[in-house]
Every structure is written in structure tokens, then in C-alpha cells.
Design a protein around this nucleic acid. Structure first.
Lengths: 189, 189
DNA sequence: CTAATTTGCCTAAAGGGTTTAGGCAAATGC
DNA sequence: GCATTTGCCTAAACCCTTTAGGCAAATTAG
């Protein structure tokens, strides 16, 4: 019988595609085996288990997101950098909803520390260099930005802002305006 | 054989407790049956299916959250109202992580429209009456607040802000200070 | 206070996902 | 060309979901 040519990488990639098509929660080892027209047990030579597959998809998504963000940030500063970075998140979530959900998977501390998640916070701090914030306010601001980006995209994906005026795109722009204004005028404790 | 006295309400309640104990994703009809020391099939007279159970837990959580928020808002305005409201969300998420996760479940539009979710947005708008915002900026602000609250709590629950200085409580306070400042000084388009 | 009816929980069974153990054949190395 | 490694397979156990049909407990009616 001919071999299918399975590798951990190909499985992860296909898992990411599957996530975008049917939703991250619907990604199962069984569904992936069907996609490769192979028996389920065969995947267990390449994947520890179901959780392992999901973690790998999450790590892939974090890498992709960090790469896009780094591209977007190149040569930009201030509000320009802020909106470019924010748009990367939102656009990625729209293009790849399953991957984006995967990127929000809770990772155990050591996996997280070795992931592209670190690059994400470094880039957020880089953006804040365009504003005038000392520690600990810079850290507070990093956390606020992360919260807004994740929160907005997440509520939008859940359908929270659809079917009501104004347009979500409009609120997103105005939210970024507001964040820029806030960072330029950060309140004293 | 004696009867267990199952009702949809008791199952929902127990499901919510189970969610807080083992996580919302681990809430299954089987686990619930074990908790009542009853066969799995018996629950299907009271619940349509697994999704139905999860939706009911979500609706319960939304009600509880809205009740707490309404209490907290009584007699408060301005920044006082803003922080009281925000703290309700964060405290609820800490006390009832499973329920909080449930509250974020994607509901179909008609279920959502009949849920306590509507009260949540009404209350957010009520808070904004303490600030000077015209439409459509008021709607943008409602969306921003929802994003920050959800985003912050969600990242915090995922462990994003632990094991690093400063304290998450500190960032939360300063985030609320910042939001208050922003709402008092909302930028023109 | 029985008798009839409704209701509640049960057994049985089918379908799907996860995971491990052990086997044979294809690919690789000498 | 032969030995070894690697890859995919069969088989099987376990758990969760869901439906169908049955018996007994609780409720209602005469």
C-alpha cells in the first residue's frame, strides 16, 4: 500500500486549514485522518494526542501573526504603527478565524515562553516607544492594548457588533483614534 | 426505584457548578448524570441535547452577571459607576470562571435577543450618560468598554498577566483610570 | 382509596472520537 | 540484495452523545 507522506508539519498545516473551515473546536484527529484518507491510528505516530495537535496549530498561528505584525511594523511609528499592528490582528482573525481562535489557546507556561507570544509583547512595547510612558505605565498600557485588540476582535467574531449601526469598521477606527489619544495623554496616578 | 428529582433548572444549576469546578469545556451530559447518580439517558427528558445544556448555563450566567451589575450600579454615576461595573465582571470571572466562560458562548441571534445580554448593553449605556458623548461616539464607546472588560478578564484568566510585575490588580485600576480619562476627553473624529 | 394516566428514570443500542498495542510492508542504509 | 527502520494498518478498549422503547413511581380522577 502506498504511503501518504504524513509528517507533523503537514498535519499541523492541514489542521490549521481545517480549523479555518470548520472551526477550531471541530478540529479532531479523526477529521484530520479523513482529510488525508488515512486511518486514525496512523496519525498517532506523528502527534502525541489531540491536545498536541491543537497546541501545534496554536503555535503555528502565533508565528504567522507575529510575522505579519513584524512586517507591518517595519518603518512605522506612533499612531501609524499602532493602527498597522492592530489591523494585522483584526485582519488575520477575519481571514483565519480558526487559526485566530487557536492562537488564544491556553498554553502551559513553558510552551508559552518558547512561543512567538514573546515577540508579540516585544512588538507592543516597541509601539509604545512612540509615546511617552515610563514604567510601570508602559506595562499597564501593554496590557490595555492587548485587552482591547483581543476583546474587540473576539466580540466582533462572536457577532456582537453585527446587525447594528454604526458599522463595525467605523467603531474600530474610532477605537484606535481613542487609544492613540489616550496614549498621548496618559493620566497620572 | 426512588426518583432523583431532576428538573431542567436543577440540571442547569448543577451544570454551572460543574463548569466552575472543572471548566466549561468539560461540562458534559455524562458528567452531569454521574453527579446526580443517574443514567445518562435520563437527562434527555429534561435537556434537548448537550448544546442545550451549555446554552442554559450561559443564560444563567448572563442573568447572574446582569443582576450583580444592576446592584452595583444603583446610586452610582461617573467613574464610580464605571469601576463598580467593571469590577463586577472581573470579580464574577474570578469567582465563577466556568460560568464566565459560559457567558461568552456564541448564542444564536434570537436567543441572544431574549437573554440578559440586552440588559448588559443598556447598563453600559447608562454608565456613559455620566460622560458627554453623542451618537455615534456613544456606541463606539460601548463597544470599546465591552472589548476592554472582556479582553482584560479573558487574558487574565488565561494567565497572561501572572508571574510578571506589576500586579494585575494594579494594571486593572490604572486601566480603569485611563478609560475614565479617555471618556472625559473623547477625541473628535 | 383504588384505578387510570402521566411522568421519570431505566435498559439497550448505534454512532463517533481518542488512544494503545502489535503487525506487515515500504523505504532506507550497508 | 539484505537488514533495519519507519509508516500505516487492524484490532480493541474506553468515553461521550443521542434515540427508542419499557416499567414503575407519582399524580389525578372517580
Amino acid at each position: 500500500m502506498a504511503r501518504a507522506g504524513l509528517t507533523t508539519e503537514r498535519l499541523t498545516q492541514a489542521g490549521a486549514e481545517l480549523a479555518d473551515e470548520v472551526g477550531f473546536d471541530q478540529v479532531t484527529v479523526s477529521a484530520l485522518a479523513r482529510r488525508f484518507d488515512v486511518k486514525v491510528a496512523s496519525l498517532y505516530s506523528h502527534l502525541k494526542n489531540s491536545q498536541d495537535l491543537k497546541t501545534r496549530i496554536a503555535l503555528l498561528a502565533l508565528e504567522e501573526l507575529a510575522d505579519r505584525a513584524a512586517d507591518a511594523l517595519a518603518g512605522r511609528a506612533g499612531k501609524d504603527a499602532l493602527t498597522a499592528f492592530a489591523d494585522v490582528y483584526r485582519d488575520y482573525a477575519h481571514e483565519h478565524p480558526g487559526r485566530y481562535t487557536a492562537a488564544r489557546l491556553r498554553l502551559d507556561p513553558e510552551t508559552a515562553a518558547a512561543s512567538a507570544g514573546v515577540r508579540h509583547s516585544q512588538m507592543t512595547r516597541a509601539i509604545l516607544r512612540g509615546y511617552d510612558l515610563e514604567e510601570p505605565d508602559q506595562t499597564h498600557a501593554v496590557r490595555l492594548l492587548g485587552s482591547v485588540f483581543h476583546g474587540y476582535v473576539s466580540l466582533e467574531m462572536a457577532g456582537g457588533f453585527s446587525h447594528s449601526a454604526p458599522d463595525s469598521q467605523e467603531s474600530w477606527s474610532r477605537t484606535l483614534d481613542a487609544l492613540d489619544a489616550l496614549l498621548r495623554n496618559w493620566p497620572a496616578p
